[in-house]
Design a protein around this nucleic acid. Sequence first.
RNA 1: CGGGAAGUAGCGCAGCUUGGUUAGCGCACCUGGUUUGGGACCAGGGGGUCGCGGGUUCGAAUCCCGCCUUCCCGACCA
Length: 466
Amino acid sequence: MASAITPQATDFPRWYQDVVSTAELADNGPVRGTMVIRPYAYAIWEFIQSGLDQRIKRAGVQNAYFPLFIPESYLAKEAEHVEGFSPELAIVTHAGGSELAEPVVVRPTSETVIGEFMAKWIQSHRDLPLLLNQWANVVRWEMRPRMFLRTSEFLWQEGHTAHATEADAAAFARRIHLEVYDEFIRTQMAVPTYIGIKPPSERFAGATNTMTLEGMMKDGKALQMATSHELGQNFAKAFQIQFQTDGGGSDFAFTTSWGASTRLLGGLIMAHGDDAGLVVPPRIAPYLAVVIPVRDDDDVNAAVATIGRELADAGIRHHIDSGRGNFGRRVTDWEIKGVPLRIEVGPRDLAEGRVTIARRDTGEKIPVALAEVVATVRRLESEIHDALYEGARQRRNANTHEVASVAEAIEAADSGFARLPWSVAAGAEAELKTHAITVRCLQRADGSLPEREDEPGLTALVAKSY
RNA sequence: CGGGAAGUAGCGCAGCUUGGUUAGCGCACCUGGUUUGGGACCAGGGGGUCGCGGGUUCGAAUCCCGCCUUCCCGACCA
């Protein structure tokens, strides 16, 4: 059987490209760095969107929408912010047939516009906390684009909140980080992450603290899967987000922002995919099962129709592939697309009153009685999720090495992650960088999320990254 | 943005060095038939401004210049 996909071990970036195109996930757009998200990948994105959106709303946040165009002068109001984003801004200088008096930037993120309106809407401590989120596209002109992982335009959600106290802001950002991002990525995408805070060198431009979730891809590189920032009073001061305290005085609010993007699709591909293609975790799979008639035959077709009806009645997302193509061809097509379960229905199965259910994650083929199909599919949904998560967790742990020195960390980061005392890594960031290694995050020794970067005894997690 | 490689049918490629028939091949696609338990077979068929623009020439896929796009390696990043 000739493979349509370059094996991971041969050339991982090539494997990634092959999966993206062969599984019909995305095409390059005509402008460098842009991307067309095809229906199958967009369907997965919609599951990601709705899962995150539910959790965001559960945290008390309301959705709103702010404009794509931002006055250039807004960006300049926060010194670090403008410095961080200037190199990657797309700026519109002409519109309506003439040169604009003030250029407008295409939003790279929306702290500035939203800050402007927070200032307008917040008068009193009774208006706090103000909890907003928007689903939007943003533009950051990238030097080296990669499908899903780094494109010049991408889709995301960006949450922006304002609070009366620093403690309240910190607690909220932390809550989003753990109860929205970690919970979703773990329980729906089956990806285990390392949760920590960014060292000052890796912080978001304008933030006082940045939290991250770092996933390990199959080639041992790290991917930042979502970030949450405490912005202190930096943006509040730049945009005059002030409120009257209950004591009658006036204070600047403390703001936060947090986002997760279509990059998650890239993470999904590289965290679970294998040499046969994509492997979609069942809870966010467009189809949990695909039903494949082994041959075009009246009995088979009747059985397939019945199974299709039962799956539909049970509310199970499925697809019936009754294309006339060769059986093996249809099998591999759906393997490449990573559908969790394949229900094969053929005369030999039916003679015994059963079907054959094949798991995409293990390749295992299970004979299942016709009456048990729905119950089995339901049971396997959880089993496959758990197996994917557990497999990823074990791979991650096996490729994370506790080391004591920078030299050992450099060696370990060749194939995975290294953990070493932050006190050791802190002075060596430049040296690590010459090996394309960065400090992905800082954690407490027990792996938990620290409150602050200057807590004693922190551990640095270092790796190569996307 | 620096260093390297490349753009010829939907995909993968040959042709270019040494300019000269009607630009080929595999896969995919369409029609008909035989097939179908792991990427089928036979027959017939459709599809190309050779990335874009300019130049050299009697003549350019082929030589020269510019630009665009893609991939790899760096610096930058969700």
